[in-house]
Design a binder for these strands. Sequence first.
DNA 1: CGCTTTTGACCCGCGC
DNA 2: GCGCGGGTCAAAAGCG
Length: 192
Amino acid sequence: MNYNENPNPNWTHFPANIDPLAEFELSDYLAFDDGVDQFNSLSPQSLVSSENFAAGGTRAASSTETGNMSGATSRNTNMQKNKMDQVGHRVAFRTKSELEVMDDGFKWRKYGKKSVKNSPNPRNYYKCSSGGCNVKKRVERDRDDSSYVITTYDGVHNHESPSVVYYNKMPLMAPNAWNLQASSHSHSSSSS
DNA sequence: CGCTTTTGACCCGCGC
DNA sequence: GCGCGGGTCAAAAGCG
């Protein structure tokens, strides 16, 4: 069964409990805006501001696979051919930390590891282990700065974090941008 | 006991 | 048509 879908995906707490050892120094956060039109690959990294974060309504998960893809054991079956159908949000974070395991409050299940040809470091693939939540996370070390970790998030959680943190130690940032679930406070989109 | 992790194999898309 | 690169899944093992 699916987690009780919270009609209020207002998870304004991203950086949950940061380990005192891990230096959560957000040097730069890149936002890949694609899914609507998707510009050319000329701009692989668009450094957008927090305000520009708001992408088009992307209700990717929870709509198509919630009950369809859950358990698709047949690898041959056509997984969403429409890559844009599912991937509607991509965010990359560059963090200077020795540990790549950043606890964002969600549970991630590592499902694969691959080495990048351009990097001597392997790339780890994580997936949200929450029911119905197929958010994917990709973490890899910067090939130029092994001390930096690049975490790329794919998708949006459609459920509250298993461990809601009440410590919002990031008032400077605009966490609101994270919640492009199409319903931050006015829920105007979606079912009009 | 359940769940997560680990490695390999497999598949897909694209390029040449 | 084949090769390369990348991505994902799957079975087994390890750990709490």
